[in-house]
Design a binder for these strands. Sequence first.
DNA 1: GCCAACGTTGGC
DNA 2: GCCAACGTTGGC
Length: 160
Amino acid sequence: MAYWLFKSEPNVYSFGNLMSEPDRTTGWDGVRNYQARNFLRDRVQVGDRVFFYHSNADPPCIAGIAEVVRAGHPDPTAFDPESDHHDPKSDPDSPTWYQVAIRAVRAIEPPIGLRELGGLPELAGMELLRKGSRLSVQPVTEAEWNAILAMERARKKAKR
DNA sequence: GCCAACGTTGGC
DNA sequence: GCCAACGTTGGC
C-alpha cells in the first residue's frame, strides 16, 4: 500500500463534498498535468491512502483521509465537450488523461494547516512543503504519513 | 491583489 | 533543441 496527497480547491470541490457523495466516492477527474497523470495511470493502486488537501484555502490544510477504490482508468471528462476539463486533443482510442476513484475515510477535524505541517522536522523533504510545488497528485512517504497522523494524535491528546 | 515558481507552446 | 512568451498554481 502506498500513500498520496491529492489537492483540491475547496470552493471547487471540498472534502465535505466527497463525504456527501453517494457511497462517499468520486472519480478524481480533471487532472491535466502529465506528472500527476503518470501517477494516476501507473502508480496509484486500490487500497492506497490519500490525504485530501485544500489548496487556495484559508488556511491551506489537510482536511481528510480517503482511500483508493479504483485504479487508473481514462478520465471521461476529457471527452465531454460540456465539461470544463474537456480536451479535444485527447483521443478516446488512446486517452491522454486518467482518473482514479476515491472514497472518504474520515475527516481530519480540525484540519491540519500548512503552517503546522511546516513545523514538523520529519516533513522537511515533503513535496508539499517545497517552495513552488504545484504537483496536484503527489506521493507521500510512509514516514511522512505517520508523522502527520502522530501530530494529529498529539494534538487531540493535548486538548483533553 | 501580488508575485514567484512552474508547465506549456511555438517560433526559430 | 533552445528559449521567450504566456498561462496557471497557490501561498501570502
